[in-house]
Design a binder for these strands. Structure first.
Length: 181
DNA sequence: CCCGAGATTGACT
DNA sequence: GTCAATCTCGGGA
């Protein structure tokens, strides 16, 4: 099994569940993702290319990192067979560098370290500096899962446009989701 | 447990 | 000026 970055976001997002993502050796298993694509009113790429979303129109397999609500970062992986697609990483099960995550997050509770797009960026140390960098090279590492994951699907969270589209994906049975499905 | 409000900044109308 | 792919804390049931 390998990760095919040319898959459209709604197919790449579920394929990412179970993969192991680290930044400078800090990270864990991806347990929740959301898909956004070029024809999607909820996507940052929908209005066209701008300075902020330029990475979404660049190479697949690279990061798109943006600031949200003035204080948090969100990490996406650019993918698809045409420009403008990406998958938002929403939650991770901590595995490596847990002591570092505890320091950065200010809590010892494992289920609060990476259970949300803003939280996991804080825990893994993801910022604007990572925007546009390939996931396959340091400081990133992304390893596909060996076995197919048991998946949950549901509507995406926190958006106002196309809110009913079921493009949120999660790992069944984990306690590390941002919210229950 | 559930809900509401405040924090804080930059991109876009 | 408005508003956003969020998080945290405090209060009430």
């Amino acid at each position: 099994m390998y990760l095919d970055y040319s898959l459209p976001p709604e197919r790449f997002a579920p394929a990412l569940i179970g993969a192991v993502l680290t930044v400078d050796g800090v990270g864990g298993v991806i347990v929740e993702t959301e898909a956004y694509d070029a024809d999607d009113p909820a996507s940052h790429s929908y209005p066209g290319k701008t300075a902020r979303n330029a990475a979404m129109f660049g190479e697949v397999g690279c990061a798109y990192v943006y600031r949200i609500y003035g204080m948090h970062w969100c990490l996406n992986i650019v993918c698809g067979d045409r420009p403008g697609g990406a998958v938002l990483i929403r939650a991770i099960e901590p595995l490596a560098g847990i002591e570092t995550m505890i320091e950065r997050r200010g809590t010892q509770r494992l289920e609060l370290l990476c259970s949300g797009p803003g939280k996991l960026c804080q825990a893994l140390g993801v910022t604007r500096e990572h925007d546009g960098l390939p996931l396959g090279a340091p400081p990133f590492a992304l390893t596909p899962s060996r076995v197919p994951a048991k998946l949950l699907t549901g509507p995406r969270i926190g958006i106002t446009k196309a809110a009913e589209v079921p493009w949120r994906f999660g790992l069944a049975g984990t306690r590390f989701l941002s919210r229950r499905f």
